[in-house]
Amino acid sequence: MASETHNAADAAASAPGLPQLNFDHFGNQIFWLLVTLVVIYFVLSRVALPRIAAVLAERQGTITNDLAAAEDLKAKAVEAEEAYNKALADARSEAQTIVNAAKAEIKADLDKAIAKADAEIAAKTAEGEKKIAEIRANALVSVKEVANDTTGEIVTALGGKADKRTVTAAVTARMKG
């Protein structure tokens, strides 16, 4: 490592003094620095910065607009939902009305039909009863005649004299008893 100390001195020899402190070069550096700074300043202030500011402002505007539009759309969606709900409720109540009306109508029809059927049934029943009563009356008369006849025959056959009035009275009494 001994050679390194030699070489440090060697380096110093190769560059007498610090390059930064070589005043001969200051003018050149300062001149080019000023040129550079002026160029950068004009590029920035004329082109780059206004452009970026415009882009950023435009983006901010777009974002604001989009947010507003989104807010609008959201409000619209809420409105639409409300309208939908209202329509649904309306339809429901209407359907209820219709159902109720139909129910009432059907009920009325049914009642009418039942009443009619009841009336018919009642009429038929009455007719039937009448017929039964008739038949029964006829039957009773026939039975009386048959009984009279039969009684007369029997009495005759037994050798008696069949008095028609007596027989009838007897049969009538018998049949009542």
Partner: peptide, 12 residues
């Protein structure tokens, strides 16, 4: 600054 002083002593 101290680094600068060192450099100045070394080179200047």
């Amino acid at each position: 600054f101290s680094f600068l002083v060192a450099l100045l002593l070394m080179f200047a």
